[in-house]
């Protein structure tokens, strides 16, 4: 329910905000012939009054009385609007619909985000557990310092250092582009680094708290191996804060990829968003915004569900 409300708000607000800004998608260096301009506007329905444009965009009814196709083709397919999961034609990339652009770039961004999250989880959790077990040691201190440093540095600076070290000084990896696994390592690392740091901190504190609890003492007392105690008993409770952080982390990885995609020249979603906002590519910008909203919202929901599964004391209805 709230999902629908949120989505409605996003669509409406961003639609009207975007249209209210001066300057259209077809403003160029040279001024167009008025007739041509009219034709272009008619093609994209920009000559309609705003509410009509809005309803056409949302759908699912086609308000175009000529039943005209607005993105080419043989007329067999009619624009259905956002409710039919059609985001319309891109204003800038003339031969593409927004759906096509998203379906091309979303897998790339998703893959990158997954690499980053996996790496952040693996490193963060193991570092957190290690420093919680060796509390107060040098290892703990070093890890805490590294974690705070990782939080303190912006990821594009980390990316800069990575490029200098692993591309130019020790030529191991390609500097930019997208393709095989080789291309994913540096961007994934740079994107995941701040989250790895944060997860390490969360794991450490979570583990410390759990380790001092009675049931762990009991487990130790009944003679379980330390490894079993940690893996079976402590980890489940200790990772709760991490799980609740995953929602914001995934949102952060998604938006953070704007920068990383720019540095490493990855043809993902982030690039499209920035360009579309600057180019006034209304439909593309709307499409990407809606997509991100859906992603973030569903991630938050999944995280909430996972939370209740891990900790039965929490009731979702109460949240």
């Amino acid at each position: 329910m709230w999902f629908a409300v949120t989505l409605f708000c996003v669509v409406t607000i961003s639609f009207f905000m975007m249209r209210s800004v001066r300057g259209g998608p077809f403003d160029g260096e040279r001024t167009l012939d008025p007739a041509i301009e009219r034709n272009i506007e008619a093609r994209y329905h920009l000559d309609w009054p705003l509410p009509k444009q809005y309803f056409q965009y949302v759908g699912p009814f086609n308000l175009d009385e000529h039943r005209a196709e607005i993105f080419g083709g043989d007329g067999s397919k009619v624009f259905g609007g956002v409710t039919m999961l059609e985001f319309g034609p891109s204003f800038k990339y003339k031969d593409f619909t927004v759906d096509q652009i998203i379906s091309q770039s979303l897998p790339i961004s998703a893959l990158l985000g997954m690499v980053a999250m996996m790496w952040a989880l693996a490193l963060g959790v193991s570092a957190g557990i290690a420093s919680a077990l060796k509390r107060g040691s040098r290892l703990d201190l070093a890890m805490r310092l590294a974690a705070t440093g990782g939080i303190a540095l912006p990821n594009f600076v980390i990316a800069g250092f990575l490029i200098i070290f692993f591309v130019f000084m020790i030529p191991l990896l390609p500097v930019a582009g997208w393709g095989s696994v080789k291309y994913m390592l540096l961007p994934g690392f740079a994107l995941g680094a701040p989250y790895a740091a944060y997860i390490a901190r969360l794991t450490r504190t979570g583990m410390l708290e759990v380790l001092s609890q009675d049931h762990i003492r009991t487990a130790h007392a009944k003679g379980l191996a330390p490894k079993t105690v940690i893996m079976r008993h402590a980890l489940k409770g200790g990772l709760l804060p991490v799980v609740s952080y995953l929602g914001p982390a995934i949102a952060g990885v998604l938006t953070g990829s704007l920068v990383i995609e720019k540095i490493f020249k990855i043809p993902g979603l982030g690039t499209h968003f920035i360009n579309s906002a600057l180019n006034r590519d209304y439909t593309l910008a709307m499409g990407v915004t809606i997509l991100f909203t859906v992603l973030i919202y569903s991630m938050n929901t999944i995280v909430d569900l996972a939370y209740t599964m891990l900790d039965p004391r929490i009731d979702l209805e109460e949240m």
């Binding site: 709230w2 949120t6 961003s14 905000m17 800004v21 938006t255 704007l258 906002a277 938050n300």
Partner: peptide
């Protein structure tokens, strides 16, 4: 608090980018 929740699930970076292009424009 529901309102805050809704705002939480907005991709805020986009709103900011949008606001900034807006201020540039005006």
């Amino acid at each position: 608090m529901r309102f805050v929740d809704i705002l939480y699930s907005l991709p805020f970076i986009f709103v900011v980018i949008f606001l900034i292009t807006l201020t540039n424009e005006y």
